[in-house]
Design a protein around this nucleic acid. Structure first.
Length: 112
DNA sequence: TATTTGACCAAGA
DNA sequence: ATCTTGGCCAAAT
């Protein structure tokens, strides 16, 4: 039964799925960033987070539209950036010139 | 297994 | 403020 006898067990395991779960904790009207989300997972894979969304957005199960760039710009969206813009606006997040208004205040802080 | 790709980020010019 | 460069990670090819 002993197959590999104590593997180093890296902190990664279904990186994507964990992204989705954390993302689901972001309340409506707030946004998060790829970096913050990665940090919440204890990783620096900012890009990997974005990739996970692009590859499998699991929509509409996961509110991937609430993830924006660290500079406040929208970033991207698998269903069209325009759609992302509309949804965010509808949730109370105002986008001004392609950037979130009052960005720092709109960021949701994950419990660390 | 090795290489490439991407919804990124921070720093430098 | 914008543009360029290097780095970072996981998943796809």
């Amino acid at each position: 039964m002993n197959k590999k006898t104590s593997s180093p067990k890296p902190a990664k395991k279904n990186f994507s799925e964990r992204c989705y779960e954390k993302l689901c904790t972001v309340p409506k009207g707030s946004v998060t960033t790829y970096a913050e989300l990665a940090r919440a997972l204890g990783s620096k894979g900012y890009r990997a987070v974005g990739q996970a969304m692009h590859r499998n957005p699991n929509a509409p199960r996961v509110p991937c539209h609430r993830v924006v760039r660290s500079d406040g710009s929208l970033g991207g969206y698998a269903f069209g950036l325009k759609k992302k813009f509309e949804i965010l606006t509808k949730e109370g997040v105002i986008i001004r010139d392609g950037k979130v208004q009052g960005f720092p205040e709109k960021i949701y802080r994950f419990r660390r």
